[in-house]
Design a protein around this nucleic acid. Sequence first.
DNA 1: CGTCGGATTGAAGATACTCAACATGAGTGG
DNA 2: CCACTCATGTTGAGTATCTTCAATCCGACG
Lengths: 253, 253
Amino acid sequence: MGNRLTRKLEQFVRLSPTERLRLDKLAGKRQKVYRANEIILEERTKAEFVLLVVSGLAARCKILSEGRRQIMAFLIPGDLCDIEGFVLNAMDHDIIAVTETVCAHLAVADVEELLTETSTLTRALWWSTMTDSAILRERIIDHGSRDARERICHLIYEMLVRYRVIGVANSHSFPFPITQELLADATGMTPVHVNRILSDLRTEGLLRWKDKTVTILDVPRFKEIAQFDGCYLHLERTFQGDAEVSERAGDLL
Amino acid sequence: MGNRLTRKLEQFVRLSPTERLRLDKLAGKRQKVYRANEIILEERTKAEFVLLVVSGLAARCKILSEGRRQIMAFLIPGDLCDIEGFVLNAMDHDIIAVTETVCAHLAVADVEELLTETSTLTRALWWSTMTDSAILRERIIDHGSRDARERICHLIYEMLVRYRVIGVANSHSFPFPITQELLADATGMTPVHVNRILSDLRTEGLLRWKDKTVTILDVPRFKEIAQFDGCYLHLERTFQGDAEVSERAGDLL
DNA sequence: CGTCGGATTGAAGATACTCAACATGAGTGG
DNA sequence: CCACTCATGTTGAGTATCTTCAATCCGACG
């Protein structure tokens, strides 16, 4: 299956075999399995290593009073949980495993080395961080300026593209093993309302969601409803030419 | 008045005189004045330098269809607009001047050098970037899990702390030269509703907003309404001891 | 003195919420 | 194999928050 992080970074930069090897070695080290709903990193603790999601699905979230909880980002294979970990004093939010999730524990020293070299890899990791921020900004737009329907469509479409980037999704279908309640926590709505919107999308023939897998039935219309403009994912590679990577996700933007 | 960026970074790390000098030199180079409402950086263009806000107030925003616009972050003196600038291909949002704003144009090469050294400064800049992300996440929580009143209070309180960090605010008052319409764009509400909430806060004796200056009249209650927990701003310094900096913003957390 | 951007107020309406009931389906134990 | 439970999904009815549209007010500034 290859290293998802490598695959992701190669959407942006061209990596040499040496660099690829180095990433693989980094990711292959100590891995740990987390059960569904387990807390991977807890708020207010100091993370002692940087975590890389290898498989499964995790989420950045904050537990609020009255049992509410806000999911701020979903983390899929190839995502680094926590570059913050080695630079900040404490986590300001939790990271939880949505499904069973495998994470690689990268030693702080290794990451630090990666981040301070003037290499392609450094640049790639910076790209990754900046893109994560851009995704956060898009979530703000979701909440501030899009209604429930647009918001849900936008999140789903974004996940499609992100899964595409790491080679998991085809052009209109991807695994998304979350409950409607989690989707509600992520979109800032109630589960009831999420349910109604999904129901609408289904009866309109736009979406199928079965066996933990989302299938977008009418991709162009879906994209339009979502007002999706993939610019913010920064998948246009500029450094070291392009080509060679057969399947890129650019066509979904 | 000193360099706001230096001041900000020193909330987190202790800088040597040499390092301070280096920052000052960086910031003092080419400066440009932007008039109110002028676009500082435009979406889809490649930024050719990194911008540092020297004075004034700017905002990251995205123009949406139907004249709507979403403000994702306010930028105050000492904030770097755009570390993205040198790593990504294109801006995925606009940066606009809210009031007359002075920005320093930092050469890409200079910043790159700063970011790839294994120095305290590098670490400090990483901290700055990570904290910016944390602020974005907090905005997501605002929109997803707080009602209008909490949302407005939270944003205002956060601005108080941030202005405090750069030495502009006292313990309960700071300059905030924005219209209610802008606040609406930032909180994802209508100007009308913003107006009503502010009006409530005023009649309850919690807030004064006059001459472009916000004064929080009952700080503890205001903080409580905002459900403010400053953990996410990561103002607890750990590296190279503490002390010496007379006025820190920790007491507001 | 008139104009213009911004603030304020009112009334009607929509989107999304709350509460609550009920359905479904997987898993468990008798 | 059925009864039971538990988590999740579905549906209905009433309600609240926030929006929309519109009118009016206010102060700065030509």
